[in-house]
């Protein structure tokens, strides 16, 4: 019974412990520290963009993506390059009639 009263007493004391609390004050030279931070912060949109792109979390995945895209482009180009060369050769042969001329051809246009 006594302990119950004590618990109640402590609880009430704790609940009322912030009555009349004073405002805590910040440590000195806050303005100087803020100005230092402001000096380090990017101001314009372009600076913000460069700051954003320059972050490792953005820069490394972006670089990896570019590299992967380049490798894929090179691989797909080399696999299709032989067939493309053949096609180009046959097209130019058709366009310019690159065939061996015979006497029959010149006499019968």
């Amino acid at each position: 019974m006594k302990s119950k009263e004590k618990i109640e007493e402590y609880t009430d004391k704790a609940l009322n412990s912030l009555d009349g609390v004073e405002r805590a004050s910040v440590s000195p030279y806050l303005l100087t520290r803020i100005n230092q931070k402001l000096g380090a912060e990017p101001a314009t949109v372009w600076e913000k963009l460069i700051f954003f792109i320059g972050k490792p979390a953005i820069a490394f995945p972006a670089l990896t993506l570019i590299l992967v895209m380049n490798v894929l482009a090179i691989v797909s180009q080399t696999s299709s390059s032989t067939s493309a060369a053949d096609q180009a050769a046959s097209l130019s042969a058709d366009d310019y009639s690159l065939t061996v001329a015979t006497i029959y051809d010149s006499e019968n246009p």
Binding site: Y10, K13, A14, L15, N16, S17, L18, V21
Partner: peptide
Amino acid sequence: RKESAADL
């Protein structure tokens, strides 16, 4: 009140 406030 410091101790009670810390508990709160």
